[in-house]
Amino acid sequence: MPDELSREELLEMYRQMVLIRRLEEKAAELYTAGLIGGFLHLYIGEEAIAVGACKALRPDDHLLTAYRDHGWAIARGLDPKRVMAELLGKATGVSGGKGGSMHLASAEHNYWGGHAIVGGHLPLATGVGLAIRYREEDKAVLCVFGEGSTNIGYFHESLNLAAVWKLPVVYLVENNQYGMGTEVSRASSRSNIFEKGCSYDVASAPVDGQDVLAMYRAMREALDYAREHGPFLMEAKTYRYSGHSMGDPERYRSKAEIEQWRAHHDPIDRLANLLTSQALAKETDLQKINRDVEEEMEEIVRFAKESPEPEDDALYEHVYVQPVPVQ
């Protein structure tokens, strides 16, 4: 048995990864059908990172992510029905239909968003870390972003300040090799992003982002380190099977490259192989989970489609905490 994870926990992690993938595939369908507007960034191929990392997070830890956030929301425990409802802009969505795909959040899960200005949430996560130290709490912050964000000033400002103040923040880079269509080596002075930690005297390490157990173990250690000592920079090597967002012409990479990752580095296949090879699950157990997820997806989509639109009054709600009358 890997680590202290039980068979049930491993099967649950498998289920979450399958659910995330199916939800993303469904979202792509609904987007094409015109039911989802705006931008839609899919997480297919990267599921192990969110599921492994969130398994290591404690309920009272904090989470902030970038805009490729559906998988994170589900792994953090948000209701998938309300996640899908948000994609459809419904009142029952996790952000009341006002945020959309890129802006999922849940205060009760200490999940402070889905943020869509590249790098913009790194200072925010740093500040949440400051609040933890200020109140002398035994908590940590997980801040998730793509490798493209590590070239922006916020990355420098945040890691520097977190190191000076020894803030309990794990900065997790999802290095999926491309910032939109620009390959990492064409945009970053270092292709191994974790090496940038040494500029700030911030401890850092790479991890195989396609291996959910490696991800879980590394994140658990990083969070403990952050609580005890200060910031940690982790780089999860990964790959997104889909385009940057829907409608990406994908001129920057070959089909063969995508197929190679799907065939040899798929995070769901990898956990399935581990479970069956170690006799923790039979093929039929996994098939049953897949079927259960299919059924759940029908319910998720039904709920999202049948949910009401936001009321007209919602337009002016929450501009300020106390409503300000319009003069």
Binding site: S95, G96, K98, G99, A105, A107, G113, E317, H318
Partner: peptide, 8 residues
């Protein structure tokens, strides 16, 4: 505050 429907 607005974008996350009052949660933040």
């Amino acid at each position: 505050h607005y974008m996350f429907n009052g949660q933040i």
